[in-house]
Design a binder for these strands. Sequence first.
DNA 1: ATAATATTGTGTTTTTTTTCACAATAATTG
DNA 2: CAATTATTGTGAAAAAAAACACAATATTAT
Lengths: 185, 185
Amino acid sequence: MEKEGRISCSSYEIGERADILDTKVRKDLSSFGQFGIAGRGYKIKNLKKKIEEIIGKDSIWKIAVIGVGNLGTALLKYPGFKEECCKIVLAFDSDPQKIGKIIDSVPIYDIESIEREIRKNNLKIGIIATPSEEAQNVVNRLIKSGIKALLNFAPVSLSVPDDIKIIDIDLTARLEALAYYLTHK
Amino acid sequence: MEKEGRISCSSYEIGERADILDTKVRKDLSSFGQFGIAGRGYKIKNLKKKIEEIIGKDSIWKIAVIGVGNLGTALLKYPGFKEECCKIVLAFDSDPQKIGKIIDSVPIYDIESIEREIRKNNLKIGIIATPSEEAQNVVNRLIKSGIKALLNFAPVSLSVPDDIKIIDIDLTARLEALAYYLTHK
DNA sequence: ATAATATTGTGTTTTTTTTCACAATAATTG
DNA sequence: CAATTATTGTGAAAAAAAACACAATATTAT
């Protein structure tokens, strides 16, 4: 909405775009504070800033991508990551052809140096874009190096200690959800 | 577990891997039928087959990818899609350099032929891997051509009629969720 | 054959999430 | 300035999801 040049909006409009009810928008926001004006709605710029504060976007999170195959490369070039709080600063791969190269100003390091580089740069977030077979091993090494949160694209279930947050992006499961929908009306 | 050579497993073990309680595994399965044996658990092969039936994997869903950039290419080569029910059979792009090429046995067509090809092949599922600016336009054309379900990678909210199912993969939002976790202990 | 163990399926309870309902507030119209 | 309209924030109600508790059943051990 900000990009559309708008100044303010109602919870109803937010809900319309997020496909949820206005009342849920307000309830959810209310657990963090009061950001709107009765009868007028929310100032878009202000609300965005408040949400960024809530999420923790004021601090910039530096991220490592492990695995520079097709998916890893796509992530390095993903425009959504350019302007936001989360910046990919390091990539790792085991392929000598790739090591040393730079993609979109992100240097690709040898996966053997993963512990050293993660620790040196004090990274806390890692993205797993390796083949499934290597994912668990990479995760173990990342955690040993101080990584606290993971985004996993490998279609396997990874085991991590309780204090490590892991979010799985299981594309096959998502497509299966669509197939389920089509099969059942 | 099947790949590990195992024959049967308990709901507790499934829950452990999916990070949910055993009781939830059983409750969820129970809405579709009784697949286990008291005291013995589930036959892995049998349970897998039953779940595939539930999801609708017996029929093979042919899928189109729109946008053959880095992400689109990664999807065409994604190993998770090879062995499963969902097979990518067509890709579209507007770049003359790409049109006519074949990636992993998937032919890339001119985006201008999208309506014709989707209809001719009777496709029902589409994956949006275009730049954000073009996503809504592409979606409109897909729906006009008979597409009923969409997986959207463009970081924009797309509007579709009520009878069309759309699942958004918002990578930025996922990273923000990790940032939120790290900020709040 | 009996006891001990493992584990399912499900009715009930608890917890969480979502929705409703409405008083309060701000702006606009007549 | 009173009435009307738009819209928030929130307590209460309703709905949905998750967890509990346990009878039933299958296997293994003694």
